[in-house]
């Protein structure tokens, strides 16, 4: 199962990079969302895929009695999803605010912080 999923990760990243090459900020963000999912999926695959039970220890036992799935990648992904969710939500809110204030989503036209022709001193 790892092989096909690895290909999926590759496709997700390729699509994400393609979207991120756009000038439009919203496309850029969607590209980031795709890559973020690709990263989570990569962690998931890194934990190896097995047909196994959930990693729950039955009552009264110290360790699982049967073969269980690797719980660590799942914990990592959960954390990563939460963080990614927060970051992307912030980015979305920021983009909305930028669109309202600057009136454009084209990054090439956002030149307030770095003017194309900075003020030069004319004479001493």
């Amino acid at each position: 199962m790892e092989g096909p999923l690895a290909v999926v990760v590759g496709i997700l990243i390729a699509t994400g990079v393609y979207l991120m090459l756009a000038r439009d900020l919203l496309h850029y963000l969607f590209g980031l969302v795709l890559i973020s999912n690709a990263a989570n999926l990569a962690i998931f695959i890194a934990g190896r895929l097995t047909r196994a039970s959930p990693p729950l220890i039955p009552e009264g036992q110290e360790a699982p009695q049967i073969v269980v799935a690797n719980p660590l990648p799942q914990a990592l992904i959960l954390t990563a999803i939460v963080i990614g969710f927060g970051l992307l939500a912030f980015a979305l809110a920021l983009i909305a605010q930028v669109y309202r204030e600057l009136g454009t989503l084209d990054v090439d036209r956002m030149r307030i912080a770095e003017p194309v022709r900075p003020k030069r001193k004319k004479s001493l």
């Binding site: 979305l92 909305a96 309202r100």
Partner: peptide, 17 residues
């Protein structure tokens, strides 16, 4: 935390639009 954070975001986005 999750409830508060998500609602902060939803309210902020909704108020803005």
């Amino acid at each position: 935390t999750v409830l508060g954070a998500v609602l902060t975001l939803i309210f902020a986005l909704e108020e803005a639009s």
